[in-house]
């Protein structure tokens, strides 16, 4: 029996033929990176290969690194193995990684979602034999509503808070969620203020996407400036001293976990908006079907449950454990946020 094209070893997802890792979690020689979230793009690799857009993002996050940018659908060959990146729709610059050797095709999704969010290039299904998929929200209890409806709710919430003379504080991860929220905030209601971590990241992305105007919160920003306006902040700012400046304020969190009533109470936010950059249950099933793959490998999320269901549907599905973390802590490390506040 020949060795599988991709294996999971202690450093990450490894292609031995090309001596390349996909989103490795320990330092390696050569890494192809799906997207800029901290659990997928880590420090310490000698060489990074990623999408052009993501080059800017990971340079911002990781500092001076040796990185090569690629376009979507551009094939590059390493020791006879053909690699290419394809839109994953997860966040701006996110890719699925296609790996082909002697006619056998594998696709690693990184993180992905199917809905076109207007910021990231929308997901494109790639035909393959083996599909390595995340399943962060791989439970039938997760069903997203269209983002247009969610943003209507968010803007309505902001407007109501403003009427009540309250500042709205909306939590979302600095990379991805924050920009997606920002894009659809209605500036007829008021001004958009940002936490430093979000402003820094948005500055990187602004040249590529049309965003409304934002104002960075600094030491000089007063309560009066903020009153009635909206503040975009990373989740870790909740409960910090930084947030006291917003008083009187109302908090909300935008995340897939907000689908659970308990999650909102536990995060102690006033309001939860169900908005995720990952696939819901049905999206996962749709995506898998579209790849035509027979072998499915489930990584982070409800892997055991999801792969059992896939097996019952006739797929050859199994799980592999990784160090990817899903929507809870993916986007930034605590230090990155603290530095910027």
């Amino acid at each position: 029996m020949t060795k599988p094209l991709l294996v999971f070893n202690k450093n990450g997802i490894f292609c031995e033929q090309a001596n390349v890792y996909l989103d490795p979690w320990y330092p390696v020689d050569r890494a192809i990176i799906s997207h800029g979230h901290a659990d997928h793009s880590r420090y310490g690799h000698r060489k990074y290969i990623t999408h052009h857009t993501n080059v800017l993002i990971i340079k911002h996050r990781l500092g001076p690194i040796n990185v090569t940018g690629k376009a979507y659908n551009e094939t590059f060959v390493i020791n006879n193995v053909k690699f290419s990146l394809h839109p994953a729709g997860h966040i701006i610059g996110s890719s699925q990684i296609r790996v082909e050797y002697r006619g056998e095709v594998w696709v690693f999704t990184g993180d992905y979602k199917l809905e076109d969010d207007g910021v990231a290039v929308p997901f494109e299904a790639v035909k393959c034999h083996s599909f390595i998929t995340e399943c962060t929200f791989g439970l039938p209890a997760f069903k997203w509503t269209l983002q247009s409806k969610v943003f209507e709710d968010i803007n309505h919430w902001w407007a109501t808070n403003k009427e009540d003379n309250q500042t709205s504080v909306l939590f979302g991860y600095s990379l991805g969620k924050a920009q997606r929220l920002l894009k659809y905030l209605n500036t007829d209601i008021g001004k958009i203020y940002t936490h430093g971590a979000i402003e820094n990241m948005t500055e990187v992305i602004r040249p590529m996407v049309d965003f409304p105007e934002t104002t960075r919160i600094t030491k000089e920003t007063t309560k009066k400036d903020l009153l009635g306006n909206i503040v975009l902040a990373p989740p870790s700012a909740h409960g910090s001293t930084w947030i006291r400046k917003m008083v009187p304020y109302v908090t909300a969190s935008a995340s897939g976990w907000m689908a659970f009533r308990g999650a909102r109470r536990r995060r102690a936010v006033d309001k939860g908006f169900v908005l995720s950059d990952h696939c819901d249950w049905q999206e996962l099933l749709t995506a898998i079907e579209a790849t035509g793959a027979e072998k499915i490998i489930c990584t982070h999320g409800y892997t055991e449950i999801f792969s059992r269901y896939l097996r019952e549907q006739g797929y050859d599905a199994r799980t592999e454990s990784t160090q990817f973390e899903g929507e809870s802590s993916e986007s930034e490390t605590k230090e990155e946020v603290d530095k910027a506040s």
Binding site: P140, A141, F260, R261, G262, I305
Partner: peptide, 19 residues
Amino acid sequence: LFEESYHIVGDLAETIALV
């Protein structure tokens, strides 16, 4: 699969409403 979901959501009525 329903039972697993219930296990994770933690509330029967909420699980039913969700699925």
